[in-house]
Amino acid sequence: MNGTWWQAAARVPDAGRRAQALARQLQLTKPQGSLGRLEQLAVTLAGLQGRSDPSVERIWISIFAADHGIAQEGISAFPQEVTGQMLANFAQGGAAISVLARHLGAELELLELGLVQESVPLPGVRQLRIAAGTENFLHQPAMTSVQCAHALLAGREALQRALEKGADLFIGGDMGIGNTSSACALACLLLDQPAKRLVGAGTGMKDSGLQHKTQIIEAALKLHRPMVDSPLEALTRVGGLEIAGLAGAYIAAAQEGMPVLVDGYICTAAALCAVRMNPGIAPWLLYSHRSAETCHQELLDALDAEPLVSLEMRLGEGSGAAMVVPLLQAACRLHNQMATFQEAAVSGSRL
Rank of each mutant, 00 (worst) to 15 (best):
A330Q: 15
V99C: 08
T214R: 15
L186K: 03
L232P: 13
L26N: 12
P194N: 05
H68P: 13
S98V: 02
S319Y: 02
R333M: 12
I70D: 04
P121Q: 00
C267E: 09
Q140S: 03
V228G: 03
G84P: 14
A183I: 06
M313T: 07
G209Q: 13
A252L: 01
S34P: 15
F170G: 11
Q127W: 00
L186N: 07
T340R: 14
R161T: 15
V260K: 07
F90D: 11
Q215V: 08
D67F: 14
L235H: 11
A254I: 00
Q85V: 04
G239E: 01
L285I: 00
D301T: 14
S310N: 14
A158Q: 11
A269T: 01
D14E: 10
A132V: 08
K213Y: 05
E81L: 09
W5P: 03
R161L: 15
A65K: 05
G74L: 10
G348F: 14
P231D: 10
Q72C: 13
L159H: 07
G248C: 00
G257P: 02
A132R: 14
R156F: 05
R225C: 04
N336G: 07
V146E: 15
W5Y: 06
I266A: 13
T44A: 09
E57F: 08
S34T: 13
S145G: 00
I251D: 09
S310K: 15
E39L: 01
W6F: 15
E218Y: 08
Q329F: 09
L100Y: 12
G348S: 07
R156Y: 07
L272W: 07
A234L: 03
G172N: 03
V346K: 01
G316I: 06
E107M: 00
C148N: 05
Q27E: 15
S230F: 06
D14L: 05
E306M: 12
W6H: 15
L35W: 01
L45T: 08
G257I: 04
Q160D: 15
W6A: 07
C332I: 11
H296S: 07
I97R: 06
T144F: 11
V56H: 05
S34F: 12
G176P: 03
E298T: 14
L261S: 10
A322W: 07
D168F: 00
R314N: 13
D304N: 13
E157G: 05
Q255V: 11
Q140A: 00
A131L: 13
V99I: 03
W60I: 01
V325H: 09
N2K: 06
P79N: 01
L198M: 04
A321C: 14
K213N: 05
R225T: 13
H150N: 06
